[in-house]
Design a binder for these strands. Structure first.
Lengths: 116, 116
DNA sequence: TGATACTGATTCGAAAATCGAAGCAAGGGG
DNA sequence: CCCCTTGCTTCGATTTTCGAATCAGTATCA
């Protein structure tokens, strides 16, 4: 597998600096990555079930993402499916204000649309 | 332009639900999007300067992303360059715990690598 | 009136990422 | 054995991204 997941300290796509946050933005900025973390924060989930929850995302990309996230030590696979590691749980928690923000975004977008 | 930026309330790639957070994950999950927001949170920046800061990302994608983010009311263009709107600033603030997390990620990745 | 040099932005062929249906190997009942 | 489910791979088609060239608009200086 072309396991070339971004890691802190290693220069990544779009940044020569290797600054951790840039590696994080690279990893999270790939299609489905945040969605997968989001789904796994609800409950451990197997491969096929995860695919179902994500509106049948392609299995090839799911497999690639799971490799990347596992390589980044954010996931592990057990008998009951993929789990967030403590580090992965912290990431989801760091991302959680996004939920509240998105609701404000929705309200303001509605208001703006109503004004048009 | 294929101006098809995700908006809350509108079903987006990977989600029929139209749940705001899914629209946000879709928008943010596109290449360079978070990086652009990150750069603009430091200071207003013009098109070409923004391109320079992002390691010379392609102008076509930059243009597309700026359209999407402007359409989502997260940016505006003034004489001194692109600005975050208040909504956009709130998003960056919602994302800011990511910086602290990424540093912990870096530490733990170093430790794990040292054990190998 | 050029000439030059910026700006934000577009075009378009090439390259890379993603899609998605099919299939594989392993495991667990029946 | 057969059948079903699992995690996962393969591979050709589609979509996205890349990136160099280019455009139009504005300012500056001669």
């Amino acid at each position: 597998m072309g396991a070339r997941a971004p890691r802190p300290g290693v220069p990544v796509r779009g940044s020569e600096s290797g600054r951790p946050v840039m590696a994080a933005l690279d990893l999270l900025g790939r299609r489905w990555t945040m969605r997968i973390l989001w789904e796994l924060s609800q409950a451990p989930t197997g491969f096929r079930e995860l695919q179902r929850r994500c509106e049948r995302m392609s299995s090839s990309v799911l497999s690639t993402r799971l490799d990347e996230l596992t390589g980044a030590r954010l996931l592990t696979l057990h008998s009951d499916g993929y789990h967030l590691t403590p580090l992965g749980q912290d990431l989801v928690e760091a991302l959680s204000p996004l939920d509240a923000w998105s609701q404000r975004w929705a309200r303001e977008t509605d208001n703006a649309a109503a004004e048009d």
